[in-house]
Simulated scan of single mutants.
Amino acid sequence: MRFSKGRNFLFRIPEGRDFVEFINQFAKKNHVLIGTLSAIGTLRNPKVGYFEEDAGEYKVIPLKGTYEVVSLLGNVSIKDGEPFAHIHVALGDSEGRVYGGHLIEGEVFVAEVFIQELLGELLERKPQENGLSLWDEITL
Rank of each mutant, 00 (worst) to 15 (best):
M1L: 10
M1R: 10
M1A: 14
K5W: 11
R7G: 08
N8D: 15
F9Q: 07
F9A: 08
F9C: 10
L10Y: 13
L10F: 13
F11V: 08
I13W: 01
G16V: 09
G16Y: 07
R17M: 12
R17Y: 11
D18K: 10
D18V: 07
F19K: 01
V20H: 01
V20K: 02
V20A: 04
E21Q: 14
E21N: 12
E21I: 08
E21G: 13
I23S: 01
N24W: 03
N24Q: 06
F26R: 07
A27F: 04
K29R: 14
N30E: 14
N30W: 09
H31Y: 11
V32I: 15
L33Y: 11
G35P: 05
G35I: 04
T36N: 12
S38N: 12
S38G: 14
S38Y: 05
A39W: 03
I40P: 00
I40K: 11
G41D: 06
L43S: 02
N45W: 02
Y50L: 07
F51N: 01
F51A: 04
E52S: 09
D54M: 06
D54P: 01
A55W: 09
A55I: 10
A55T: 07
E57F: 05
Y58C: 03
K59D: 04
V60K: 09
I61Q: 01
P62Q: 09
L63F: 08
L63Q: 03
E68N: 13
E68K: 12
E68F: 14
E68V: 09
V69D: 00
V69W: 01
V69F: 03
S71K: 15
L72K: 04
L73I: 07
L73G: 07
G74R: 00
G74M: 00
V76E: 03
S77N: 10
I78D: 00
I78T: 07
I78Y: 05
K79V: 02
D80M: 09
G81I: 04
E82L: 13
E82D: 13
P83M: 03
F84M: 06
A85K: 00
A85W: 00
H86S: 15
I87G: 00
I87W: 00
H88E: 14
A90H: 10
A90Q: 11
A90P: 03
D93G: 02
D93E: 08
S94E: 15
R97K: 14
R97N: 15
V98I: 15
Y99G: 01
Y99L: 02
Y99I: 04
G100Q: 09
H102G: 03
H102E: 12
H102C: 06
L103R: 01
I104N: 02
E105L: 12
E105W: 03
G106E: 02
G106A: 05
V108P: 04
V108F: 09
F109G: 07
V110C: 07
A111W: 01
E112G: 09
E112N: 12
V113W: 01
V113I: 11
V113Q: 02
Q116P: 02
Q116M: 12
Q116K: 14
Q116H: 14
L118P: 00
L118M: 12
L119V: 15
G120I: 08
G120C: 10
L123I: 15
L123G: 05
E124C: 04
K126D: 06
P127E: 05
E129I: 10
N130Y: 06
L132G: 01
L132H: 02
L132W: 01
L134H: 07
D136G: 14
D136A: 15
I138C: 11
I138E: 15
T139L: 15
T139V: 14
T139C: 13
L140C: 08
L140S: 13
